[in-house]
Simulated assay, not measured.
Amino acid sequence: MEFIKNSNFILMGFLVWLIIAPRAASPRYGELFLAYMTALLFSLIGSSEIMMQKPIAFFFTLGGVLAFCYVVARKTIRITIRK
């Protein structure tokens, strides 16, 4: 697959999935994160079904996977500077 050729779809998928990601300051973060994770799972299953006809769906969902990893890393990794 041509990742460089379809990198703009990966970037668009990343941005879209990052925008719909739950905010960490939300009081219902756990519920919203579960819904976000489930939606991404169904998107992965759906894109695997139509990958032969529309490979752009795969690259869009690949951006979603990268956004999911970013959201998880942002929530788990904390960097603090002490004076």
Rank of each mutant, 00 (worst) to 15 (best):
residue 19 I to D: 04
residue 26 S to V: 00
residue 11 L to S: 09
residue 1 M to G: 15
residue 50 I to T: 11
residue 68 F to W: 06
residue 75 K to C: 05
residue 27 P to R: 03
residue 17 W to F: 13
residue 22 P to C: 06
residue 36 Y to S: 07
residue 15 L to M: 11
residue 63 G to R: 03
residue 29 Y to S: 01
residue 47 S to L: 05
residue 21 A to M: 05
residue 57 A to E: 03
residue 81 I to A: 11
residue 76 T to M: 15
residue 29 Y to W: 14
residue 73 A to Q: 11
residue 21 A to F: 03
residue 32 L to G: 05
residue 78 R to D: 08
residue 1 M to R: 10
residue 56 I to K: 11
residue 63 G to M: 01
residue 81 I to E: 06
residue 64 G to Q: 00
residue 71 V to G: 03
residue 14 F to S: 01
residue 8 N to S: 15
residue 4 I to N: 02
residue 53 Q to P: 06
residue 78 R to A: 06
residue 57 A to R: 08
residue 58 F to T: 08
residue 52 M to L: 15
residue 40 L to V: 02
residue 23 R to I: 11
residue 31 E to M: 14
residue 25 A to K: 13
residue 51 M to T: 14
residue 55 P to Y: 07
residue 26 S to E: 14
residue 41 L to W: 14
residue 71 V to P: 04
residue 66 L to S: 07
residue 49 E to L: 07
residue 13 G to Q: 00
residue 65 V to W: 12
residue 83 K to W: 01
residue 64 G to N: 02
residue 7 S to E: 13
residue 18 L to A: 05
residue 44 L to G: 15
residue 59 F to W: 10
residue 25 A to T: 15
residue 68 F to H: 05
residue 39 A to M: 13
residue 33 F to I: 05
residue 41 L to N: 09
residue 45 I to R: 02
residue 3 F to G: 12
residue 11 L to D: 07
residue 2 E to G: 08
residue 20 I to V: 10
